[in-house]
Structure formats: structure tokens, C-alpha cells
Design a protein around this nucleic acid. Structure first.
Lengths: 160, 160
DNA sequence: GGTGTACTATTGAGTACGCAAAGAAGACTA
DNA sequence: TAGTCTTCTTTGCGTACTCAATAGTACACC
């Protein structure tokens, strides 16, 4: 147990993990501040609106949304509470299964998403393209997509 | 998820960003639960101990630690409060600049780190190696390291 | 020396989660 | 029909942060 010093053989997985953590933290910090300031949305607010906008009928079971956003059910309840209060999302019940309630994007929600989307996407692009080459960006997406659940609701980018 | 209208050209940067978010969320969830359960440490607790263990004299200015962990100063204060209460870290003042206080790893802190490290590193390895090829792991680390601040305190992996 | 600017660290208030427990509903078995 | 098991959602409680404001200190520069 030599103290540090020696050029340690860095466990590549550990290095990758640490950097994944930090990359996520730093990019989130940046992008979140912007989205919050300009549109009053958190990143998960935005992602939720986006996912819903791409769903059939613009509605999704809460449990699906949870999987998509990597939140727990309780996180979803609270997230949607905020969006409902803001009138961006409304709840609809399911005729065939009384347990589930859908989250449905309202027209106001779609407008909000469209309004936020331009600037947000531009920020993401500029942040990534400032530091990464095109093929690096593609590599990140491709590799990280192999983690279970990550590539699920495959990401398009515009609300339309 | 066939859905929407036009097969949209997915903005690669946006896709990379979304996946980065989700990859970080899902891996963090997993690894955090384990670390918490087995050693009562959060991921940032562990990272803080690790960074300190590699620092000269096992101590670091709080502000340095903040940069390293991608936390705000107030986050650091609160993180260290917990570690101090647990006796894993102690504070030391700086002779030449009264503003700064150092965080110094105690012997107990080093022991704790060593105790947690084996299992934690093994979990990280198994999680990553289960889903990624070796060169993918290296690619993640290399690419994400280009983000400012991410590759800073360059990560070795063992405490010792 | 005083004065302004730039750090460093802490605190109060607020937030976005997570976990565990609980209720309500479907689904299978008998 | 009842009994049990699973699934979906919400709630209480706890926590790990953030931001904004504060206070102490350092270092100009005149």
C-alpha cells in the first residue's frame, strides 16, 4: 500500500464512471440554469413534455413516463403535479384499467414545449459541438445507448 | 414507438445529451444504493474521501474539493458536515490565508474508504463490463474527459 | 492608512428527488 | 366466491443538493 505516488494503473471502468458522473453534473448545471431562467422549466419538465409530445395521442401512462425519464413513480407524481398546476399536462383515466392514469399533454403544454425547444436544442448543440467532434458525439450516444433502458424511447429532438 | 409523422432526423447532440443524462441516472441509482446500504456512504461521500486520499497531506481546500466534485461551495459545506460528524474528515485552518479551511482525511476516514473501495470498484467494473466492451469504456472516459473540468483531478481508482 | 474588488465559507429557504408504506384495482388460482 | 399476488399510484418522511444573502479575509491601488 504505497501512498499514491506511483503512476497507478487506473481502472478504466472507474475512470469512465467518474467522468460520466462529472460530465452529467456539469452539463446539467449549465443547461438547467438556462432552461429554468428562460422558461421556468426543469430539465425533467422539459423531457417529460417532449416525451409526451411524441407519444400516441400525446398521452402516456405514468409508469411509462417513469421508465423514460428514469424516475421512480413517486418522482413522476410530483413532477406531473407541477406540470398540471401549470396547465401543461392533464390527467386522463384509462377505461379498461382503473389503476392507471394517463398524463396527457395539453395544447398549452405543446406550445410551451415549442417555445422552449428552439433555444434549448441550440444550447445543447453548442455545448456539445464546442467540445466534441461530430463522431465523438455519435460515439457517446451509441455507446451509452447500450445501457439498459437508456435507448428506450428513442430520442428524436423536435416537438413538431 | 412508431409514431410521429416524419422520420425525424435526430439531432445527434441532443441524443447524446439525453443518453448521457439517463446513463448517469441509472448507473448512479444502482451504485448509490449499494454504497449506501453496505457502508452508509453516498456517492459524493465516497468521492470526497477518495479525492482527499490522493491529495497532498490528505487535505484539500474546500474550494478545490468543490471543483473536483462539481458541487457548489454550500454543497461542500454540507457534505463535509456529515463526514466530520462521522469522524472521517476534520477541518484544519490555513496559516497564510484565514479565509480558507482545509478538509483533511482522518485515519478513520482512510480506513472507511479502504473498506468501501473494494466492493464499490468491483460493482463499477461489473456494471460497466457487463454492458460495454473494453474499448468502449476507454472511449467514454476519453471523450467525456474533454469537457472542461471533467478530467481534472485525474482519477486513479484505489485509495491506498 | 483607507477603500474597493475578489475570494472563501456558512446559513436560510426552497426544491427535486428517493424510499417505504399503503390503498386500490386487476389477474390468476382454487 | 374468495384468496393471494402483482401492478399502479399516491403519501409521509427524509435527504442532498441549489441559490441568494451574509460575513470574514486578502489584496489591490491611491
Amino acid at each position: 500500500m504505497t501512498q499514491v505516488l506511483t503512476e497507478q494503473v487506473v481502472e478504466p471502468a472507474v475512470q469512465a464512471w467518474t467522468r460520466l458522473l462529472r460530465a452529467s453534473a456539469s452539463t446539467t448545471r449549465l443547461l438547467s440554469a438556462e432552461l429554468q431562467e428562460e422558461h421556468g422549466l426543469t430539465i425533467n419538465d422539459y423531457e417529460a413534455l417532449l416525451v409526451l409530445s411524441r407519444a400516441e395521442d400525446r398521452r402516456l401512462k405514468r409508469v411509462e413516463l417513469a421508465r423514460n425519464l428514469m424516475l421512480t413513480p413517486s418522482g413522476i407524481t410530483r413532477l406531473l403535479q407541477g406540470l398540471e398546476d401549470a396547465g401543461l399536462v392533464e390527467r386522463a383515466s384509462c377505461a379498461t384499467d382503473l389503476r392507471v392514469t394517463y398524463a396527457k399533454l395539453t395544447d398549452a403544454g405543446l406550445e410551451k414545449l415549442k417555445a422552449a425547444s428552439g433555444g434549448h436544442v441550440a444550447s445543447i448543440r453548442s455545448l456539445f459541438e464546442e467540445h466534441f467532434a461530430d463522431e465523438e458525439i455519435r460515439a457517446i450516444a451509441e455507446i451509452l445507448g447500450k445501457l439498459p433502458g437508456v435507448a428506450d424511447g428513442d430520442d428524436s429532438c423536435e416537438p413538431t
